[in-house]
Each structure stands twice: as structure tokens, then as C-alpha cells.
Amino acid sequence: MSSKVLVINSGSSSIKYQLLDGVSGESLATGLLERIGQPVGAIKHEGPQGKTVLEQPVVDHEAGIATILELFAAHGPQLDPKDLAAVGHRVVQGGARFSGPAVIDDEVESAIEELSTLAPLHNPPNLDGIRAARRAFPDLPHVAVFDTSFHATLAPESYTYAIDRDVAREHGIRRYGFHGTSHAYVTQRTAELLGKDPADVNVIIAHLGNGASITAVRGGRSVETSMGLTPLEGLVMGTRSGDIDPAVIFHLQRVAGMSTDEIDALLNRRSGMLGLAGASDMRDIHDAIAAGDQDARLALDVYCHRLKHYVGAYYAHLGRVDAVVFTAGAGENDDVVRELSLTGLERLGIQVDPVRNEGRKKTDTVISPDGAEVTVLVVPTNEELEIAREALATIAREA
């Protein structure tokens, strides 16, 4: 049987895709369609013939999938459905219903749609991509891999919010956690780098992209994670506030006269680093600090303070920590963030070697000194490969 999987990550105005060998891990082609539904779309495809860049309208996700097929046909590799094992789809919210990947049928599609109330910005475009791809590849198995499923191992005391239990049950209010495919991949890879079975390893993983989350993993299982009912809770992010007193919302309604939608936009799109410093990209933050911008300096301090807070809390939950791992955008590329977020934790056995930590890390790198009690690592994430692997495992179980 083929081990090739086409992985599709469909956003509201974009489709990110990659063709992988789920066994060897080899990436055979990768691409990104952006500005779907706008007058001119931006398209990038990279395969055996090199990189292709186009600008043309992509009216919707159906047209986006058709464009992807055209790119494979014109620029390779040839995408023969007979050579594919499956199509893997990232889905953000699986709720309490999906504790693992699922082969997509009409019933699963309906369930993903129903769960859109918990992820209104994410599940609907995920579903648009699924439906378009199922029509394009009607004879292939399609597998949904949920961001939330890695965190299905959270204990009730971890995922339960202290609100009226009947209200919570009726409306599905609990902690779900996100970035599960990234945390799953990094968990497995960290165990390999330490030369141990995942079941024997306790790790704290900081996924620091524009959306950021941190997870405590005991023996390969998520036991604590910072994102909650939605991806808004937890760490300071590019445009999201992270943890905030819920009464701030009521205060803004009563005193500032802001509507629910206005507050939603404030906390999700105009807060975090953007709200504090006027920029969501860490490179811009560092440039501003170098120019003497005190707001940018404070923003960085708040960001790292919150991160350190979670590292310490998760250390307490785990009791023993074998590794602290940084991944994703700032985690892989920002040595200042890595250093500041762990400075002062030496009594916990957590140290960063300044020479090893220096610069961007494109490969797995140990940044703690020799003999450190806790290994500190940078592990570049590979969510697409994790989706491909989980898709293959799922169809094998279903066979």
C-alpha cells in the first residue's frame, strides 16, 4: 500500500498543503494558496521542478483545491489518486466527541459542523476544505486530525472550569486545548532525541507561533495545556490577549459601551503583542526595543513573564521534568525569548547555554549546558508529518 498522504490545512482565506511520505517523512511537494475570495490570490507551489509563484483569482475553496490539482499536474509531482493512501485534514475543534483522528464520512462532516459553535473562526473553513477535497478525491479515504484530540487525556480536574455544572454541560464549556498535532509530534521527537520511550518522559512544550500554547506531557500524554475552550486562553500571543480577568469583558460592556463582537475582536485581533507594542511579529518587537521603544520592551517582558509562569506551574504538576522544548515561530527562531523565559529557573535544574542558544534553529538542537538536570531543546515542529502519520495509522486500523 502507498504511504503517500496529501495533507490539507484549510483556513478562512487560505489553503496550506503538503504531499508527504508518512513512513519516511519525506516531503514531496508543498504549497500555499492565500487571499481566497479576494480579487487576486497569491499562490506558491514547490515541488521537484522548484518553486512556482502565481497571482490569480481563487474565488473559493472549491476553486482552491482545483488550482492545487492543476499545480501538481503542471509542476509535479504527478498526483495520481492511485498512488495516494489518504488525504489528511487538519481540523481545529473536535470537542469531547473526537478523542483521536476519524475517517471522514457524512456523519463526521456533520459533527465537525456542529462543533463550529466552539470554533467559529476555524471549523467552518476546515470543513470547506474537506468538502472540496472529498469531491476532488471521492475514492480516497479522508481523515480528520483534530488539534484538540491530543489533549483528550486531560483529567477532569484539569479541563473543568468552576462555573455552574449544568450550564457547562449544556454548552460544552470546558478546556479543550489546541496545537495538538504540534505537541504530539514534538513529544515523540523529544523522546527519540533523549533516547527514551515516550512513556518514560516528562516534557514541557512551548509552541510559540502567532498563536501560542504550552503543554505539560507526562509519559506521552497531555496532562495540562494553556489554551482552553478556545485558542484565546493562556500565553500572550501575536494578537490574542491570553489569560485575562473575565470581568474585563463586563467592564468594557458597561463602561466603554463595547458590544460582544467588538470585545471579541479586541481580545483576539487587537491584543497580545500587537496591542501592547503595535506589532505582532517578534522581529519588529526587537527592532523597536533596539530603537528605545519602552512599550515594546514591556511587551517582551510580559510575554516572557507569562511563559515562565506556565513553565513553573507545569513543573509543579509534573513533579519531574526531563526536558523543556521550544517549537514553532518564536520558539525556533528567537533566542532572546528562549533565554528570558527560562532565566531564574536554575534551582529547578533548567538552564540555557548562551552559546548553544544563539540564533535561529532549523534543526533539533540542545541549548542547555552539558550535565544539566533538565535538557532544554529546540525541536522544529512538523504538523503536516504528524497529520500524515495519524492518517495512515487511522486507515490501517479501519482496514
Rank of each mutant, 00 (worst) to 15 (best):
L318Q: 06
L298I: 14
R270H: 12
R270N: 10
K308Y: 02
E339A: 13
C304M: 10
D293R: 00
G359K: 08
D281F: 08
V325T: 05
G349F: 14
D301Q: 15
K308T: 12
V324H: 02
K308S: 12
N268R: 03
A288Y: 00
R254N: 11
A328Q: 03
A288D: 09
D264A: 09
Y303T: 04
C304Y: 06
R320S: 11
D293T: 01
G349H: 12
Y315D: 03
D261Y: 10
Y315K: 00
T343A: 12
E358N: 04
I263F: 06
A328G: 03
E358I: 09
L342V: 06
L340D: 01
R356P: 05
Y303S: 01
D281N: 15
R306N: 03
Q253E: 11
Y303N: 03
L266E: 04
N333S: 10
L266M: 14
V355D: 09
C304I: 13
S341Q: 11
E339T: 15
G349R: 13
G359L: 06
R254S: 13
G329F: 11
G275I: 10
H251S: 06
D281M: 13
D293P: 00
T343G: 00
I285Y: 00
V302G: 00
V311S: 02
V336D: 02
A279H: 08
S280D: 15
A330G: 08
G275P: 03
D335W: 09
I289N: 00
A296M: 05
A256H: 12
R338P: 02
I289Q: 04
D264N: 12
D334I: 14
G329E: 10
A290E: 15
A277S: 08
A296G: 05
L300M: 10
D281T: 10
H317D: 09
Q253Y: 08
G319C: 08
I350L: 02
V337A: 03
G359Y: 02
R356M: 06
N333A: 12
R320I: 10
V321T: 08
H309D: 13
V355W: 01
I285C: 04
V311Q: 01
A288S: 12
G329L: 13
D353S: 03
K308A: 14
R297Q: 13
A288R: 15
A323S: 09
D293K: 01
Y303A: 02
D322Q: 05
A290H: 12
L340R: 15
V302A: 05
L276P: 00
E332P: 07
A277T: 07
S271T: 14
H286I: 13
E358F: 08
